[in-house]
C-alpha cells in the first residue's frame, strides 16, 4: 500500500512540484494550504509523514505541530519542517517539540525525498 504524505505549505508552485516528484516515488500526496485545513486533514485520516512549513495562514508554527501531535490519528506521525525561517533558537525549539527534521529553504528536492524515505523506513522498523 502506498505511503501517504501530507504537505502543508501555501507556496502553491513548490507544493505542486513536490507533489509531482513524490508521486513519481510512488507516494500518495495530500496538500493543505493553511493550518486549519491541515488540522482537518490530520484529524480525518492517518498520514505516514507530514511535511510542513511554519509560516502558513491561520494556525501556524509550533501550535500546528502541537495540535497534530495531539490528534488521535497522527500523534506518532513523523513531521518534517520545511521553512525559510532559519534562526537557531527557532530550529532548536521546533526540534525539541518532537519534529524529526528541520530543512531550511532553499532546499534540494533529492535531499527531501531521501529524508522522507529514511523516516518512513525508520517508522516501519519501529512499527
Amino acid at each position: 500500500m502506498r505511503k501517504r504524505i501530507l504537505i502543508v505549505d501555501d507556496e502553491l508552485l513548490v507544493t505542486k512540484y513536490l507533489k509531482a516528484r513524490l508521486k513519481k516515488e510512488d507516494f500518495a500526496v495530500d496538500i493543505a494550504t493553511d493550518g486549519q485545513e491541515a488540522l482537518k486533514k490530520a484529524k480525518g485520516r492517518k498520514f505516514d509523514l507530514i511535511l510542513t512549513d511554519l509560516m502558513i495562514p491561520n494556525v501556524a508554527g509550533r501550535e500546528l505541530i502541537m495540535q497534530i501531535q495531539e490528534s488521535a490519528l497522527n500523534a506518532e506521525t513523523p513531521i518534517i519542517v520545511l521553512s525559510a525561517l532559519s534562526s537557531d533558537e527557532l530550529i532548536v525549539d521546533v526540534l525539541a517539540a518532537g519534529v524529526k527534521d528541520y530543512i531550511v529553504k532553499p532546499f534540494s528536492v533529492n535531499v527531501i525525498v531521501a529524508k522522507i524515505k529514511q523516516f518512513l523506513q525508520l517508522s516501519l522498523k519501529v512499527a
Binding site: E11, L13, V14, Y17, K105, P106, F107, S108, V109, N110, V111
Partner: peptide, 15 residues
C-alpha cells in the same frame, strides 16, 4: 517569475 521563484526556493538539481 517562475524561474526566479524556483531558484529562490530550491537548490541542487532543480536550481
Amino acid at each position: 517569475h517562475l524561474m526566479v521563484y524556483f531558484q529562490m526556493n530550491m537548490r541542487g538539481t532543480v536550481a
